[in-house]
Design a protein around this nucleic acid. Structure first.
Lengths: 322, 322
DNA sequence: TTGTAGGCGTTATCAG
DNA sequence: CTGATAACGCCTACAA
């Protein structure tokens, strides 16, 4: 691949002059400019981003750490982040932690090696006090997406508020027993519980941990063997909701007549399911825009910026399943 | 971030000695080694990948060009590629062409800028004779995934063979009219047609182009208004199949009694749908492994390798929808 | 076993 | 307007 020095030789000028031409400096004689540009085009010159980065300027590289890119929601997020980054002239180095904290740590190192200009991250652990420290060591701007981390820029959907809305929605739809399904008891669980508690329905609420399909089926079977009024089920995310729907079908429980189901993330499939799945819509595009925007802002900032906490409001997309 | 030179100063040795220690050379006095390692650890040293790359050695970076990462199939592929690359010590720069050939071209340039060691790509166009030329200009090894490109390493599922299997399967299940649904008439379409032709059923076969949900609904409605025997529908991919299922429900056409549906990619949702969706399973893990493996092989090869064409066999996962 | 010197491709700073 | 020169952080000779 041709370099500036080589172009310089071919066009009989100095290498810095080539640099000036290729970077659009106006202080170059037109004839030289022409000659250099022609040569560059002929040999399909592309600047060496490594050299540029090494020299001290920016690398125009953003590290993106996700937990699971095979989840439609994160895949969509990655897509939007990539698109947004691209319009701002950045490229993306992608890492998938697979919910493994050790891998996450490793990636945090790798990201430093490449001297990325900034990092967008979805931390594995929700309440990990170590994160702000890690980030401090990182020595590059970090914006947390989808989660809230104290002391760091966090762009996220307000899970708690959203889950309160979910609870309110289920109550409004006439459900009288409630089930939360998920693997860990996070903000979603909290908000859900909270709203039901204020409505005086806490004792009608249960949680079922999701571990695998079989276990879930057994748990739900046991639950529905005890007769009771209509149950509103809040699934941690759409993938989980999909499984719940499929199990309810096996158990022959009509949706939404006897049990309602609402998911989270409003992935593309929700509208096509049967019954069409109600879900909490995340403003993915907005999140990506805000996150990348904030990150570049921090990258270009001359002075320290205070941490930004930006909880975005969720909206519930109601479909047939509730 | 601390550099070798700085460590050298702190430990009162020369910079190359630091390099030797940090790269595990044995020809260093134990006391010096200790001192340097301690200092490196204390300051959390991470080598500068840009400098290393610039210096002439490899960047340990792979460019990955996908068409649409929000598609579960590609998201899964990306995940596996990332995982495989990581075990081999590579990181991934991700690009999403969004089926836009212009963006693809741009990305091919960007990838060169970063001097990636190799590229894994899903080309936008299936029959683009220009690709091999682009790749030649690229000056880095390229492996094409999911598609076959003449003259380049191609790791792909044999769409044609798979689609022949699909046709045979539908015939075997007693379907007597056939529908192919997709946006373009590629190898899937060809194989499907081919098998039906050899079975003497070509005149019972139609294609419906997928443009949007509304249009598809109208087309299917029109199709089913003409009474006929059971129809076997082959949808271009699972996403498309999902939509077809949802439309058939609207049209009140029982699946699989009156119409059978089979998708492509066997994404995770297939088994949870109602009726559970038959689909062509792609060996994603294997594809990722083979592709990354081949790419690294080519990266490390001393002499030119002949293009590899590796069509992987597909298996059909039969579920209730057919 | 260790240190010195040179170069990878840029940009920035200075002279001319 | 243009050309030397140094520097970024690392590795690879080569020399001591």
């Amino acid at each position: 691949m041709i370099t500036m020095t080589e172009i310089a030789k071919l066009t009989h000028v100095s290498q810095p002059t080539v640099s000036r031409v290729l970077n659009g400096s106006t202080t170059v004689a037109p004839e030289i400019r022409e000659r250099v540009l022609a040569c560059a085009k002929e040999h399909d010159y592309q600047f060496n981003a490594l050299a540029k980065g090494l020299q001290g300027s920016k690398t125009q590289l953003l590290g993106v750490l996700l937990t699971d890119i095979s989840n439609s929601f994160f895949a969509d997020l990655a897509k939007q982040i990539e698109a947004e980054a691209r319009t701002l002239g950045y490229s993306i180095i992608l890492f998938n932690s697979d919910y493994d904290a050790r891998r996450e740590q490793e990636y945090l190192d790798v990201v430093r090696r490449y001297r990325v200009d900034g990092v967008l991250a979805v931390p594995v652990l929700r309440n990990n006090d170590a994160w702000p420290d890690c980030v401090k060591k990182l020595d590059v701007p970090v914006v947390v997406v989808t989660r809230r981390v104290e002391g760091l820029d966090s762009i996220y959907l307000d899970h708690e508020a959203a889950s309160r809305k979910v609870a309110a929605h289920l109550v409004e739809q006439g459900f009288q027993r409630f089930l939360f399904i998920g693997r860990d008891y996070d903000a979603k669980y909290l908000g859900f519980q909270q709203e039901l508690t204020t409505q005086g329905l806490a004792d009608r609420t249960k949680n079922v941990e999701y571990w695998n399909d079989q276990r879930l089926e057994e748990d739900l079977r046991a639950y529905f063997q005890q007769p009771g009024p209509r149950t509103g089920i809040f699934a941690n995310n759409d993938i989980c909701a999909l499984r719940v729907l499929s199990i309810l079908r096996i158990l022959d429980i009509p949706v939404p007549e006897q049990a309602g189901v609402i998911g989270f993330d409003d992935t593309f499939m929700a509208r096509y399911l049967h019954p069409a799945l109600s879900s909490v819509s995340q403003p993915i595009g907005r999140m990506a825009k805000e996150a990348v925007g904030r990150l570049t802002q921090r990258i270009n900032a001359v002075e320290a910026l205070p941490p930004l906490t930006l909880p975005l409001p969720a909206s519930i997309t109601v479909r047939k399943s509730t």
